[in-house]
Amino acid sequence: MRLPTKEKGLWLVPLAIALLLWEFIAWYVIRDPLILPRFSTVIFSIYILRELVIPDILTSLLHFGIGLALAFSAALPLAIGMGWFRNVFKAIDPIIEILRPIPPLAWIPVAILWIGLTHSAAGFIIFIGAFFPILIDSYTGFRDVPKVLVETGKVLGCIGDKKLIKYVAFPYALPSIATGTRVGMGVGWMCVVAAEMFGVGNYGLGFRLFQDFYFLHQMDYVIAYMLILGLVALCVDRVFRYFVEEKLLKWKKGIVK
């Protein structure tokens, strides 16, 4: 999204007000750092924890990367099948719809038993979270290719499913695949905390949050890590949007916005 220059700093004011309000309420109203630590204390905690923060972020990104890569490479071929071939959709959709409502957290015991306490087990939980949004948005894209584009392809010699998918359906579905991936990334990141809760390693944002800080009742550390969770996700999303929406989907600019 492109904001006019005048509105570029618009988000700064509400953010500053929210932070000031937080600082003020914590200091004068709540007055108990165990319930709500001050914003300045939280920022200071990040400084204190600086030795831990980077390895924790990297470990969490590793889990996230494993999960997302798995989810994307499994969902995309399935989405092509389900979106392009009606019979594949009819055959597979019931299975998908049974598995989809199962919360990723419910898969934790399965992950531990199948994979053990490894990074891959955490990746598996994130995979479950990210897989369905990617699949569903993507197959919708393949399913909704306008008939006139398919027929145009055919009269220009683009004949057969393989060619039609490659030259017509896939480029048409790309924005849907991108949307699905973005939503999947969001859900996947939410699963990071849960995925690291059961101790697959000695690092990770979720691991730290539950294994260290929670037991020690260190609210300022907890909130510091919550902020980091939010900030990392924001960065990942921005990078994704920059590369995908600005570079890959330039042709869509006139349509969305």
Binding site: V148, L149, E151, T152, V168, P171, Y172, L174, W251, K252, I255
Partner: peptide
């Protein structure tokens, strides 16, 4: 109908 490939 308009039948251009919008991504091209």
């Amino acid at each position: 109908e308009f039948s251009l490939f919008p991504w091209r």
